[in-house]
Design a protein around this nucleic acid. Sequence first.
DNA 1: ATTCTTGGGTAATGATCATTACGTTCGGGT
DNA 2: ACCCGAACGTAATGATCATTACCCAAGAAT
Lengths: 212, 212
Amino acid sequence: MPLTDSPPSPTNRAELRRKAFLQAAREVFLEQGYEAANMSEIVRRAGGSLTTLYNQFGDKKGIFLATLDESLSEITHAMEVESQSHAPARDGLTRIGIQFVSQLTRPDSLETYRLIVGLARQFPDVAKSFSEKGPDKVRAALASYLMDREEAGEISAENPTQLASLFLDMVRMGLQSRALLDSDFRPTQEEVEATVSRAVDIFLNGVATRPL
Amino acid sequence: MPLTDSPPSPTNRAELRRKAFLQAAREVFLEQGYEAANMSEIVRRAGGSLTTLYNQFGDKKGIFLATLDESLSEITHAMEVESQSHAPARDGLTRIGIQFVSQLTRPDSLETYRLIVGLARQFPDVAKSFSEKGPDKVRAALASYLMDREEAGEISAENPTQLASLFLDMVRMGLQSRALLDSDFRPTQEEVEATVSRAVDIFLNGVATRPL
DNA sequence: ATTCTTGGGTAATGATCATTACGTTCGGGT
DNA sequence: ACCCGAACGTAATGATCATTACCCAAGAAT
């Protein structure tokens, strides 16, 4: 287990190696997938040697989990929703939606998600930890914002968590599911905004021309 | 290319073999994933021999594509949406939604989807063909139903296709995304109905207590 | 300077398959 | 009963790795 204290000037050699390995491994896993990824390729890109790689991470699964951890914390961190806001519903939802979708359709978020979904059977713990750190957190944050808006009398939110899920799925999946299946597709900022704005419309007011 | 005519009584031997291979291959691919799937294991389960397997399908990718085709047509066929219906919006949407979600959360639909998503980078053509045969078809069917409902004056549907996507994503993803990450999760009929009914409510009337 | 530890480079080692080759057997058409 | 092509079963063949062994260099500590 790496200690955080190190001699002042000569920055921990091992630490540098580790960073380089993680960076390279992440590239390789995202590009090739878990099975197809080649340990030697990682070393080729990171420099260093197979020996060191194995000493630091144990085995292939070990280094894979380590890279996932890094990717996850990066993604989920960038998603710390601004749900403390007391902005009016339309504004707040739009802002949150755009933030959320932009984050999820970044190429490496997508690739990471592909990996996790593909391996959910093999590594259930990874998938679970992802759910908790990512989706669950965002949903909870949005739910609390919705409750705030209900108190303001703008909306009716009996079941805020379920409602939050519905909204997130709505803004998210149009673009994400397309992107998941077509790895060349990358939505523009305008597309993101248009999708979100349409979703917010429907979420708030529905499509009925009269109560149905 | 296999001809469809065969001697009346002695049902085409090759045809039987083919069915058995496809069935076994599908099991193996869904259980193990593409890379990990073992050709000999397929033969072990199907009976017959490696030689015959290769003669019928060419190579591993070939038999994989063949099984995918079968899975897809099975799924989409079962979903030949009752979009010809002229039922009132709430009824029609509810029925379509339930049908759709039940279908997609079946274990082998989920596993098939996992496989395709995981391989989208490696075999873009597979992912594309899946999109066309599956999602695109369903979306189009729903869009036409929405237009019908617009003519009936029940809803306003400027952009029916986009609207269809939003609705489908809404009903679908709550359960599907949970199931994708947790391979043990299987929604009950009640959960499906509750989710869909809530989604239909919001889709039709929104959550706003007054126009926003 | 010398030992000691850790990382580097290269080449085993051992598995695990996809894919093919080969000699045998079987069914059914004559 | 005889023949032919299609299946069988088994065992190559050849790749491709994960993982390990070995031996050498360099830096730190003594």
